[in-house]
Every structure is written in C-alpha cells, then in structure tokens.
Nucleic acid binder design. Structure first.
Lengths: 225, 225
DNA sequence: TTGTTGATTTCGGCA
DNA sequence: TGCCGAAGTCAACAA
C-alpha cells in the first residue's frame, strides 16, 4: 500500500465525467492496483477512485508536471495531476485474514442459545448448538417444557431453502428413537411469506426474532456480572 | 488527516457485530473525526469504519496494549487494538473545494434534447424536456417527421421498470386528443434483453445511444462557436 | 457468467 | 425532517 499526500487535481472520464480542482489530498494506491483519492472528510467514500483491475502509469504532462494515469479495461480513465508531493511512503501489509464480518447469523445463534425461551417458553432448555447429523449440523437442538426435542434452524433472512434444510434435518432426526418426535422451529429476523407458508404447511413453527431486543437482554444480563 | 499503519485487531459493535483478527492495516483518521480501517485491497470500501460525528479516545487495555475506542452518539463502538505501529504521520489538508460531476442520465437527456434526430431522423423536433403529466414528467416529448407525438424515456441502463414507467406515461398521454396517437421510444446506453422484449411487445421502440458519440458530436458542434 | 438483492449502504432532492 | 430514488453504487450469493 502506497500513501501519497499531494497537492493535485483529478479528472475522471468514464461512466461520468468529473473534475477535482487543485487541493491537498490523500492518494491511496493499494496492492490490488486500485487507486482512490481522499479528502479530509467523508469517512468512507473517496472523492474519486478506480476499482481493480486497473493499471497506473506515472508520467509527465505537456507542462512537465507529474501526471498519473489510471486506466481500466473499459477505457475509463482517472488522471491525477500532481503539483507537489508532501508525503510518499509504501508499506507491506500482506493479505488480510479471511472473513471480515461476524455475520449476524452466528451472533443470532449465540444469542438464541443463551435465551432459548424466546423460541418457546421459560421451560425451554438448550441441548446443543451445532448438533451434528449425517447431513450437517442443526443450528440448535432444544427440549421444550414437556421435554420434547425441537430442532431450530436460524437465518438472518428466512427463505425457502432454509425451510427445506430444516425439513431434511427433521426427517433425519425423527429416525432416532431417542429423539423422536422432533418438531421444528424456523427462526429468522425476517421471514419471507413463501417460506412461512411452506414451513407452516410442514408443521414447522416460524419465529421472527428481534435482534436488537435479544442483544439488549444479553447486554443487560452481562451487566450483572 | 492522520495515517497509521499498524498490526491491529478490530471489533465493531453497533448495527451489527464484526471482528477483524490481528493483521497489518491502514487506519485513517480524518479531520472530521471519522475513522476507517483499510486492507490492501478494495478501492472503495474500508473493512470497518465509524462515520462522523464520533470521538476517538486513545488508551490501553487490561494487558497494557494500545486500544483506540471510537464511539458515536448512537452507542456504536469501534475498538482498535494496536499491537505494533509501523507508521504514524499527520497531515494538514485543508478544506476540499469539492467535486464537479456530470450525471450521465441528466447529461444524456440534455444531449438527446439537442440531437433528437438520433432517436429517429432529421425531421424529428423536440417539443419539451420534462414534459409534465399527472404521474410525473416524461423525459422528452418529440414530434417525428410526420408530426406525430413521441414520448421518450431515457435511462443509463434500460431495465424493465423503465419500460413500465414509459408504458404508464403513454397510456396517460394517449388520452389527450391533442397528442394522440403517441408512440414511445426507450433510449438507453444499454438495454437489458428482458426490457427490450417487453418494450417491443408493447410497440415501444428501443434505441441504444452511444454516450461518447453524442458527447463527441456535442463537443464538435461546441467547437464551431 | 449473469442476474438479483442487501448494505453499518451513502447521497441528494423535495415535500 | 423524513421519504424516496439514484449511485461511476459495491459486493455477496444464487441460478
């Protein structure tokens, strides 16, 4: 990653045409070849940029000033005319490790594992998270107040595939005499109408969970310790 | 603007929960108080960020390591745990004079308004841009060589909604005895196959316009004066 | 590869 | 101030 602070003017010709008058800005050249131009405001959006794949050529214009030309395959061009370089440094960062975001789904699972009563009543108990089956792990396996087994599939957005997935788990789990009869709960922040119809048609109960409320309860409990 | 290259791990708790394992990254602190964390790829979007208004506190965690805590009014928190600082520099940038940009759709409309023959033949005349109807303005209303009214919908990318929109306008315009019969032209830099099929099925003619060529003609004409 | 959809969307216009 | 729609949307995922 190369960081350049420079007085520069910038022109972009591509999907639109844009011009930045001469001013001091940060020019960020990343290892993937992308270039972005930042002002000292707007947290996240560059004033101008070129997404990879693209190539950067350093040269001079007719007047002898430094001119960076960034082009991509589509013929879009970002021209950075540099009047004065105030800082220029390069840094080896390496590849950023794997997954960036802890998705909501994992966190939802965690929260529901701590508060299974949200799925039924205060008598509900968690048996296991990621309960293993031959066709993959069930998100949660619980016991309801009556002691009956319940398989829970958790999604951020509940769509038809999630119902299908839970259906397959239920079919398998119900072959186990120690568990059967196993009922199903389909829990999501949002459940699509088609998914709900399919689920209910198969006797699977749908629960729309309130992520913020779950987290709130979680935080409140955490504060007790 | 402060540029810090550091080995760090990052946690964000706010609208969602996210975690970035220890790695070398760029931490960008802007004059508006915003903080963003960049990896060595993706021109546009940081891995994590906090938009202004927010406040940055530098401290140490229990283990004595450097811990930056960025918070905003909504209670969202960005925690940056710094294991090693590889670079740290600050720069005065001043206020950016701002971006001058030409939107494509508006510009396309302007160019086609100047060159309606592109949509038909040299006999075409523009009646009005943004021709008002009860359900919104039609981009262009023209008269063809035979004097018949033509409603023109302009998009950068022609998709189905654009065809639906034009269809609604045509239905309305055709109720006006001073205009009827009104035909339709769907003009875009790029027209999706599904949109084309729908349009042609409804008797709407599709015109793919060459933005650069239009602009070229425009520039050439401008040069005459 | 193409299309669809969500996003810590951001950003602007307009009522 | 809030809704609605576009964005050089970007980016992830499904078909």
């Amino acid at each position: 990653m190369r960081l350049v602070i420079a007085r520069c003017s910038v022109d972009y010709v591509g999907r639109l045409t844009a011009h930045l008058p001469l001013a001091t800005r940060l020019v960020l050249v990343k290892a993937d070849g992308s270039v972005s131009v930042h002002a000292d405001d707007r947290a996240y959006k560059p004033l101008n940029w070129m997404s990879p794949p693209c190539s950067l050529a350093e040269g001079t214009d007719e007047a002898g000033a430094i001119l960076w030309t960034v082009t991509n395959k589509a013929g879009e061009r970002l021209l950075i005319s540099i009047a004065e370089v105030l800082h220029d440094s390069s840094h080896e960062l390496g590849v950023d490790p794997g997954l960036v975001k802890d998705g909501v789904e994992a966190h939802l699972q965690e929260l529901l594992a701590e508060q299974p009563h949200v799925l039924g009543d205060d008598g509900w108990r968690l048996v296991r998270r990621e309960y293993a089956t031959a066709i993959g792990p069930v998100d949660l396996l619980c016991r309801d107040s009556a002691g009956a087994a319940v398989a829970v599939e958790i999604k951020r957005r509940g769509e038809i595939d999630g119902v299908e997935q839970l259906t397959r788990y239920l079919e398998l789990l119900n072959r186990d005499p120690l568990l059967a009869p196993v009922t199903g709960v389909f829990a999501a922040q949002e459940i699509k109408p088609q998914a709900r119809v399919l689920a209910e048609d198969r006797g699977i109960r749908c629960v729309v969970v309130d992520y913020d409320a779950l987290r709130g309860v979680d935080d409140a409990e955490a504060r007790l310790f």
